[in-house]
Design a protein around this nucleic acid. Sequence first.
DNA 1: TTTAAAGTATGACAAATATCATATTTTAAT
DNA 2: ATTAAAATATGATATTTGTCATACTTTAAA
Lengths: 226, 226
Amino acid sequence: MSKCEQCIVRQFSSLKALSKDELLRMADCKTSYTIKKGEVIFEEGETTHGIYCVKDGVCKMTKLSANGKDQIVKLVKPGELLGQRSMISEEPTNLSAVALEDMEVCFIPKTEIMQFFNQNNNFSMNVMKTICGDLKEADDHMVSMAQKSVKERLAETLIYLEENFGKTEDGCLKLQLSREELAGMIGTATESCIRLLSELNKAGLIELDGKRIKITDRNKLRRLAD
Amino acid sequence: MSKCEQCIVRQFSSLKALSKDELLRMADCKTSYTIKKGEVIFEEGETTHGIYCVKDGVCKMTKLSANGKDQIVKLVKPGELLGQRSMISEEPTNLSAVALEDMEVCFIPKTEIMQFFNQNNNFSMNVMKTICGDLKEADDHMVSMAQKSVKERLAETLIYLEENFGKTEDGCLKLQLSREELAGMIGTATESCIRLLSELNKAGLIELDGKRIKITDRNKLRRLAD
DNA sequence: TTTAAAGTATGACAAATATCATATTTTAAT
DNA sequence: ATTAAAATATGATATTTGTCATACTTTAAA
């Protein structure tokens, strides 16, 4: 069992407010998991009894829509916490979490987190701020979905992916999503997504090499995204 | 200055967790406002220094999109709190709040709320749960925007308006929105919204009488909304 | 290594939605 | 009560997006 005290990703989440003592206690009751790419961490409708701290790897949070398509609501990266919302609301999750890469996560049981809430006001405020940030993003995202065209949303998403998940040495997006997943992020049909990628490619804003995507004219792409 | 202790709407918000003492303190430092229909409570980008408790009347939370249209992100009714997110995040608001009816609201300064956070864990948990609820709604709403057709969203919205804001004795939606506002809720052009309302009218699912809308076949409408 | 399956790409077409024009009705100001 | 402005309604048309068909390419399993 590894020590939470020495875990780097802790610095990036609400957990940074925990004291040495609290970290020791947490290390004692946490469970570490390795999750393979494509595996499910939890599924829409499940009741979670704690939260997951993402140590390594990226996962997608999805919701199955009435027409059978998976909408990707959010991507979660190392340092972030998973499942806070449903734990706090004491409701089943409204989203599924699926690994996009091999992952390492730690599960911290609800009882423990609740004790932190009671003892450590700093921690509570951090969690609250994180959720408020998520809410702001969700609202903004909603407005994009409602008011922007598919092409604008695609441009926006490509820039988001580069800014938040970086690029390889040769300038391609580090996080490789399938066309279907990319379509699921921008909320469109897979074919439409593919077609618009081709269009951006022909217009010289991006370059395509199989699954690999490289942004070649960031300014034009950003202007397109509004 | 009216007493918070005796205010009925308190029961419906996080404020229900406050003690008699805390309520007395709050009554002392709060400011009551009367806001006329159409007036702005706060505007996107403003920094708020507290939260508003809605005592009477409904308001819309909107965000101006890049194409110049106002998207209605959320409606807020009596008993709910306004501006919590931005106060907690310590960021300017991302949404404007505009009265849809004459309103009565009380402003409670941030310093006071922060004391409650520190003293009263129950209150903190209530606020957290409220924000988590908002987050869930925002996610669900986002998926609707991304995956449903305009007609489905219109049907969904009409049902939402009836369920959450009630109907008059003659069965019409109590909350009267302009076509433009309704379009702003479902994220479409005003003309498209009007056209689809006519279509639902002709199909016998609703009845139109000027601004007044009456749902006549709830089941069909609900099936349409998915 | 071969082969089936999955993923990517593109055309043809249909459906949904936006935009522009214009008429009608309602609302509010004088 | 009259009138201008705003809101509602509807047609014509353009644009966007989805769907279905099919071909090509990559991936992974046998």
